[in-house]
């Protein structure tokens, strides 16, 4: 059953809306303070949130912003309830909501809006189901966008070394935890250093891409490596940690010692006119990957052929 959380006064029309939704097999709860609702949302995520703007306007906006800005929560549909006379002054760029409902709306309208919100959420299917991050279509679109930009960017290709033996030793579900951990560290570092300019996509498996302004790319790579190497220890069994390696079988079925996963980053700087399409970026990344993979442990490598290429371009 889908859970709808109403953040509104506990009085009509909201109680009537709740009743109508319940009659259509939604599970509905009303919270009339943001404090109560916030804790509920974080610890017991609803499937849809309806927020009455007039309840605590400032706090409502902050809460919506915080939720929508978080990658793992951004897919939670949020509907804002406002007074019709406020419509002309609404700046929708300030409110990260999916739709709005006017205060005087009928029960039928509310029901339709809620159903539509769910249908719409399902249509946005590019996202990776494990991490919730944008997939290949969005990554491609984003790279095409920045190769035409006037600013300098870096595209970082991230993947794990020794991920397969880790999966073999501990099973897929722990492997998935590690992928999610990597995704989360990456997302938060990109957010921290690049803010809204940054982008993180999940190609699939243990392959990720991040896109940030060039000047923060190395810092993010260094921090990613540091944090990953620290956190991965929480996913290695104590015996193996003490021993310093995993014991698993190699492709020939022979028992062998393997290091636990480390992270590799290949950074491709991008400036205007350097590349003309997506494939060229991927080709440079593949060359870098070839080198970075030869270095044991977590490392990053940046393509420094910048000046050379520029001169070449002038010739």
């Amino acid at each position: 059953m889908r859970k709808v959380l109403l953040l509104s006064p506990e009085e009509p029309p909201y109680t009537l809306w709740a009743e109508a939704l319940r009659n259509h097999a939604y599970q509905v709860e009303i919270f009339s303070t943001i404090e109560e609702a916030g804790e509920r949302i974080l610890f017991n995520l609803p499937d849809l949130l309806v927020v009455s703007e007039s309840l605590q306007p400032e706090l409502a906006r902050d809460l919506i912003f915080a939720l929508k800005y978080d990658l793992s929560l951004a897919s939670l549909p949020i509907l804002l309830v406002i007074r019709p006379e406020k419509l002309p002054e609404m700046d929708w760029k300030e409110y990260f909501v999916d739709d709005f409902i006017c205060e005087g709306a009928s029960r039928e309208e509310v029901l339709s809006r809620v159903e539509l919100a769910f249908v719409r959420a399902e249509r946005l299917a590019d996202n990776n189901p494990l991490t919730g991050l944008p997939g290949n279509t969005s990554i491609l679109r984003k790279i095409e966008e920045i190769i035409k930009s006037d600013e300098e960017w870096a595209v970082g290709y991230v993947d794990l070394d020794n991920f397969k033996p880790f999966n073999d030793a501990y099973g897929f579900s722990r492997g998935d935890e590690v992928i999610r951990m990597l995704a989360r560290i990456l997302v938060h570092l990109v957010d921290l250093y690049a803010g809204p300019k940054g982008f993180v996509g999940h190609i699939g498996g243990d392959d990720f891409v991040f896109i940030v302004p060039l000047e923060v790319a190395e810092k993010i790579s260094q921090e990613l490596i540091r944090k990953f190497d620290e956190l991965i220890l929480n996913f290695v069994d104590p015996e193996d940690r003490e021993r310093g390696c995993l014991i698993t079988t190699d492709r020939q079925g022979v028992l062998c010692r393997m290091a636990w996963p480390s992270v590799s980053v290949a950074l491709v700087p991008i400036w205007k006119e350097r590349f003309h399409h997506y494939g060229e970026v991927a080709a440079v990344a593949a060359q870098l990957k070839h080198y970075v993979k030869k270095i044991p442990g977590s490392t990053y490598l940046i393509d420094r052929r910048k000046e050379e290429r520029r001169n070449f371009g002038i010739d």
Binding site: L42, L71, R184, I185, V187, H188, D191
Partner: peptide, 8 residues
């Protein structure tokens, strides 16, 4: 905090 992010 690294895993949850500052927004959460």
């Amino acid at each position: 905090i690294v895993l949850l992010g500052l927004n959460v």
